[in-house]
Design a protein around this nucleic acid. Structure first.
Lengths: 163, 163
DNA sequence: TATTGTTATACTCTATAACTATA
DNA sequence: TATAGTTATAGAGTATAACAATA
């Protein structure tokens, strides 16, 4: 996506342009590529910690405190039925567990195990390092400006901000 | 910037609600969140075109021209066995097809159907619009600077850039 | 022997729909 | 009735390993 270029004849260019960037990358392409980079790192760091990306995300959300199943489903933007399987696997791996909620006998509370908390913290720390490495080529002023602009975009788009 | 807003009585009020945190969003968090935003849009646009995100990506890659199965697998960073199922579904939906390669009777060439090309172009166009919308809150100079910085990051990290 | 692609199997993630239990 | 969560079923995407055909 957004990697190809169509020449002025409306024909696709051949396999060559992998390195030749005569025209600068447009903003849409930059966003998609940057996002792809971050996702790739996320997956790689997850694997390094023997987690799937979704599990890593679950653990990180739970670092903020216990959550209900429906709450987590809303967090992830998936149906609550999907959380059941997700939690079954997380529980089987000893990363999180369900406990009953005193006031409501329908509800369960999902909490991290000690192992899950350790994994979440380790994952989070390593992601921080990897993201810093991604920004390492920038000068400090550029980095700060980039950070502020990202924050602005996220804030402006924060309509449905799940978690 | 965006820290103050004038209310309907003409008075300046701080807008704390969700965005004005005591501590600003750090760069790593910004990258992960921004990436999440882009991925969410990618998925939403894919669904709007009755594609899965992976199918949308496949079609967009194929806009550059025919590709072999192993080549596509490398593109996607997955095992070639995964491409078989991916292509089976794409072919079943009439988006792409396999054809034989004259010089090599082992190989197949994957090409877009007319329908697949239309879908890819429509998807690509809409993604461009959505990404522009994401950047709409920025001032023009900020947007240009942001674009340039993204390009710099992607270029610097472009060691393994698949496609 | 190396490469291209497929098949078989298993697992994760997700959606939908129907269901139970509780509020 | 509404809410919290589960079960059942289906499908997409992926990995691994074994395989076929061709180079």
């Amino acid at each position: 996506m957004y990697r190809w270029r169509v020449n002025d004849r409306g024909r696709e260019t051949a396999l060559e342009p992998q390195t030749a960037h005569a025209s600068p990358m447009d903003a849409a392409t930059g966003l998609v590529r940057l996002s792809g980079l971050v996702q790739a790192v996320y997956q790689r760091v997850s694997e390094r910690h023997e987690l799937t990306p979704v599990q890593a995300r679950l653990l990180c959300v739970l670092l903020d405190g216990p959550r209900g199943m429906a709450e987590l489903a809303g967090c992830f933007g998936v149906e609550k039925a999907a959380l059941t399987g997700l939690m079954n696997r997380a529980e089987r791996r000893g990363l999180a567990l369900r406990s009953s909620v005193p006031g409501d006998r329908r509800a369960v509370q999902v909490t991290l195990t000690d192992e899950g908390r350790e994994a979440a913290l380790a994952f989070h720390a390593e992601m921080g390092q990897e993201m810093a490495r991604l920004l390492a080529p920038l000068t400090e002023p550029d980095r700060e400006r980039f950070r502020a602009t990202m924050a602005e975009i996220v804030a402006a788009c924060g309509t449905g901000h799940p978690c």
